[in-house]
Amino acid sequence: MAGAAAVGAAGQPVAVMLDVNVAQKQVAARNGPRTVIADLRFTLERDEIVALVGPSGCGKTTLLRVIGGLDTHFDGRIAWADGVTPRIGTVFQEPRLLPWRTVRQNIALVHPPDPAAAEALLELLGLAPYGDLYPPALSLGMARRAAIARAFAVQPALLLLDEPFVSLDPAMAEQGRTVLATAWRTRQCAALLVTHDLAEAMSLADRILLLSAGPARVVREIVVPEGSRRRGIAEGARVAAAFT
């Protein structure tokens, strides 16, 4: 099913923005180096949202670090269309806001190309009343939202999301996904979403890559049916159930 619908990069080379080919990535462990990614390949099109789903500790976060350029010690190639790394906005697993700067200052510090648009983003994500608070005064859900606002503020061509809603209660997580989908509708960009929750992946992504555990490689590709995309977690769970 997935194979037939796989987006053939060769067929439409113009639309591909990112070609990932990680032959091997090792990390230092207590008993010598451990291979966390092996022979992992996929492509990403412009404005396409791809979810990377796999068990915890399978190397998803490492893969995002490699793609984001934070980790350059690996065998393989991260090839961007035009050969230039595009503007990337990252939402880490923890919000990673600077606690000594207010929410507004945190966003200003990543140099949004359009400060007025950044302010509109705060409004859109329901953060405007909290803009002058320091992050320690925010709830985790709010801080996550601020981290999403910061990533969108740079007007990225690619968004890297690393389990952006982990450890939130279901209601807060759903609210977070709604916020994300809202931001997406107004500012289109490609995105790589790392999650271990297939229903979440189904509710947000266009295409899903299932990864195997250690070392990570793509074991299956699922294209989310057009009509079920971004219809909330209930629809996501329904589609996910059909695939498992």
């Binding site: 984001g68 350029g69 934070l70 990337i88 906005g89 880490f92 990673r96 990543v110 140099h111």
Partner: peptide, 24 residues
């Protein structure tokens, strides 16, 4: 290190990293 990684991923300059991330 998480905050420093964050700063690098958003391509903050050396001076800004020092002033806003490291010194505080």
């Amino acid at each position: 290190q998480g905050l420093i990684d964050m700063a690098h991923s958003f391509r903050m300059g050396r001076g800004a990293v020092l002033r806003h991330v490291v010194l505080p």
